[in-house]
Design a protein around this nucleic acid. Sequence first.
DNA 1: TCCTCTAACACTTTTGAATCGC
DNA 2: AGCGATTCAAAAGTGTTAGAGG
Length: 373
Amino acid sequence: MQHITDSKPAADSYQQGSIRMNLVNSDLWKSFHSVGTEMIITKHGRRMFPHCSVSLSGLQPFNNYVVMVDMVPADSFKYKWKAEQWEAAGISEPQPPCRTYMHPDSPAVGSHWMKQPLSFLKLKLTNNTLDQHGHIIVHSMHRYYPRFHVIQADNPYTVRWGHFQTFSFPETTFTTVTAYQNPKITKLKIDHNPFAKGFREGGTHSQGKRCRSNLSPPAKRAALDRKAQSRSPAGLQRMQTAFQPAETKESQSVGEGSQKGGHFAPWSLEQQDPVESLHVEPLELHEYDYSSEEQMVPASMAAQQAYRPVDYSRFPYPSNEADMAHALGHHAPHPYPPAEHCTQQQQRAYHQQQYHGNTADWSQYPLFSYSCW
DNA sequence: TCCTCTAACACTTTTGAATCGC
DNA sequence: AGCGATTCAAAAGTGTTAGAGG
């Protein structure tokens, strides 16, 4: 299959290559990552916490872009929590159907994306391989990291022909669980996630169930006050920043500063307190495949270094997925399934979608294949 | 026996419709 | 009548736990 060249003039290519992405709440991610981030997954879909929030720069202000995220296996192992630490428990399960979550603002012009950080708050993870809600399907007890795609396209259905660039952040790697294993993670979640306040305040029943009557009258009043405040402008502002701890707000300016050159150095766990770190050394970041096609952006570097992303559209299209994996290496995104791998029904479904259509429906389709794993 | 997963629970936050006041 | 602010209730989302199932 021949590569379908982009309709944009070649002169745009350099500008395409100047796109930069920063992880806005990287400090929060790092604090979780230092103890081993765990993400709860449920049959009906669970939001991520911390959630993915990124900022973009270097986009063409008047060109349309689609921003997507998918989950990539961090390695080929399955894990178990044993003796207060994670350890490998065999080879990973076959990858579930690949799904991609498209940012609800997509498509939007570059100026829109650069105006404020992008939040993927509503992205949900599920372990239900038959999920019909468009949540991203992952296996429990496996490691993943989110991979972000910025695609120049006028609508989600022409992303196949658009330039696209891929970003990921080492500190966003997490282990999927159906119930928290590491109490340190539980504490961090309760400290940072407002929804968990109900478990931070008040006592529990003998059977572990929260007892409403245990909430003291002052606590009840405080809850009512919070409710009232949430309606005021100040309250609204608090609501908007509720999921953004103070330390992460500062990081929003990260990446706006200097763009010094420098060598790429994967974010290292050696920075962390060895006492605090989990015994997961063989499973950690150095095992990642830092493929040259995907920008693994260490947060500590993102503020100082401009990353030259790879313009995938310049690559010749392999004739099949195996060739694609060979040509682009592991994790190579696969923009839109090749026609020969896509039924006519699937292709019709792509084109029958309307702009700003149901993103849940959209994500049913394997835009980026994991098949190389 | 051990490990993983699910559902129920009590609580907070979010959302949107209804109501009120200017 | 129109608009913005406020109130209220329902929905959504949270971590914990017991118990089921492999």
